[in-house]
Simulated scan of single mutants.
Amino acid sequence: MIGLNTAAVYILQTIGGLYLLIVLLRFILQLVRANFYNPLCQFIVRATQPLLQPLRRLIPSIGGLDTASLVLAIIVQLVLMALTLMLLGYGVDNPVQLLIWSIIGITALFIKVFFFALIISVILSWVAPGTHNPAAELINQICEPLLAPIRRFMPNLGGLDLSPIVAFLLLNLIDMLVVRNLAIMTGMYKGLSLAI
């Protein structure tokens, strides 16, 4: 029988995870220098502005990176993990470990955003090449900084672009060799699998 705590965790992770994705997208959009006049970018800016504006007064941009939105994403991830653990009856004994797990979680989500953006980009290139839909333009703006350096090293195959395949391989390797190993070394899988 599913209890109220399990239902509360489901709601928390669904709504909180969606907001976390929006906050991380704000960082990624700044990182890839996306067109902020795009309606989807405007939505992301409006959704993140209430929490991001006061944080920006404390945390300046470093090297052109939107540091405040990255810190906000880590804070949202940390709060989500802490609330999930508490709702399921586990204590939050080590806040430093929770912070490390949050950073690993954000890194994994960062990779997933690019991975799924690449999948959508490839599908759009088959079914609707050259479309000017705001969502398609945003997806292309997210993918292009990842694909452009790969294309420089790829041989020209007469219109066949294999750079997304190389990007998929690189993203999966980073996820497997770096993110998952860090999660295992810090006990993230063992600790959170009990709670989630």
Rank of each mutant, 00 (worst) to 15 (best):
E137Y: 03
V71R: 03
N35E: 14
S125Q: 09
P155L: 12
I22A: 08
Y19Q: 00
R152G: 00
R56W: 05
H132V: 08
L40E: 03
S69H: 00
L80Y: 07
R57P: 08
F110G: 11
A117E: 05
L20H: 13
A7D: 05
W126T: 03
P50T: 03
G64D: 02
S102E: 01
N140W: 13
Q141C: 07
P149Y: 12
F168D: 09
L29K: 07
Q77F: 05
A73Y: 07
E144I: 02
F114L: 09
L21V: 09
R152Q: 13
P50D: 09
S193Y: 14
R46P: 02
P54G: 12
I111K: 06
G91A: 15
T131N: 12
V76G: 02
L171R: 00
P149R: 06
L21T: 13
L162S: 10
R152T: 13
Y90T: 08
L65Q: 12
L124A: 14
V179T: 15
R33H: 14
A195N: 06
H132F: 12
G89V: 01
F116V: 12
I174F: 14
G159L: 06
P134W: 10
P54R: 09
G17S: 10
M81A: 13
L87E: 11
I104V: 14
Q97S: 11
L138V: 06
P149I: 02
S102P: 04
I111F: 07
I75W: 06
I106Y: 05
M1G: 15
A195H: 04
G191F: 06
P60W: 00
